[in-house]
Design a protein around this nucleic acid. Structure first.
Lengths: 117, 117
DNA sequence: CCCTTATGTTGACACATGTCGAATCAACCG
DNA sequence: CGGTTGATTCGACATGTGTCAACATAAGGG
C-alpha cells in the first residue's frame, strides 16, 4: 500500500544468508537446513530436478512419477518439497502440476557460492 | 601416468550437475543428495558456517564447539561433514583444524543457481 | 612417568523418515 | 449415475539418524 515505489527491499532475506561470511544463528540454521534437508534425499532431488528442468518450469505428477518408488511415495516426497517452500502445486482439471520457486532456489544457491566473490 | 601434461580436466564434474537443465540420473541424485543431506541438519549447518566463515577458512574444534550439543555430538557431525566431502581435517599438535573445500562448495551452489543464466 | 586437556570412537536409545498397501478424494467420461 | 484414472491421505513397518554417557586415544606439562 505505502511502498509501491521502487523500495530497495530493506532486509527481506528470502530464506538463506550466506554460509561463508558469518556464522549462522541457530534460527537461521534451522530454516536453511530445512531446505537442504528437503533436497537431501535422492528421490526428492530427482523429482525436484524433473520439475525444474521440465518445459515451462512445471510438470504434471504423471510426468515425473517414474523414479522407482510407488506413487504414494512420490506424492509424499512432493509434499515434503512443497512444505519446504521449494515447490508449489496447482490442480488444473484432472492433473496436478508442480513448479519450482525460482527465487528461493536462487537464494539457496547464492548462500553457497557467495564465497567466491 | 600418461596424462601428466596440462590436461584441461575434460569432464571432471566435481560433484553436482545443474538441477534445472536436465533431470538428474539416479546415480547423480544419489551423490548430490548426500551433500545436501549433510547440510540438512541445523547443528551441522552451523558448524559448517562456523568453519567457513572463520579466519583463513579453517577453525579449531575448540573454537566451534559451542552449538548447544555435547562435544561427542559435535565430533560426530564434523565427521559426517568430512565424509560428505565438505570439510577436511588436520591435526596440528594438540588441536584439530577443519577447513572447507571451496571448489566442492561452489560446485554445489552452482547446481542451484544455474537456473538464472 | 602420571595427569590434565583436547578429540574421537563406541554402544545404546528415542525419535524421525522412507517406503508400501489400502483406503479415500477429485475430476473426467460413457 | 457408475466407472475409470489420477493423486493424496492413512496406517503400519523397517531403517536411519541425532543424541548422549562412557570409554579410548593423542598430545603436552608437571
Amino acid at each position: 500500500m505505502s511502498n509501491t515505489k521502487a523500495s530497495p527491499v530493506p532486509k527481506v532475506e528470502p530464506c538463506c544468508p550466506p554460509l561463508t561470511e558469518r556464522p549462522l544463528t541457530a534460527e537461521e540454521a534451522e530454516r536453511t537446513a530445512a531446505m537442504f534437508k528437503a533436497l537431501g534425499d535422492p528421490v526428492r532431488l530427482r523429482l525436484f530436478s524433473l520439475v525444474a528442468s521440465h518445459d515451462g518450469g512445471e510438470a504434471c505428477v504423471c510426468d515425473i512419477s517414474d523414479v522407482g518408488v510407488s506413487q504414494p511415495t512420490v506424492s509424499h516426497h512432493l509434499k515434503k518439497l512443497r512444505e519446504a517452500g521449494l515447490l508449489t502445486s496447482e490442480r488444473r482439471g484432472t492433473w496436478v502440476y508442480y513448479r519450482v520457486d525460482p527465487s528461493v532456489l536462487a537464494a539457496l544457491g547464492r548462500s553457497l557460492v557467495s564465497a567466491e566473490t
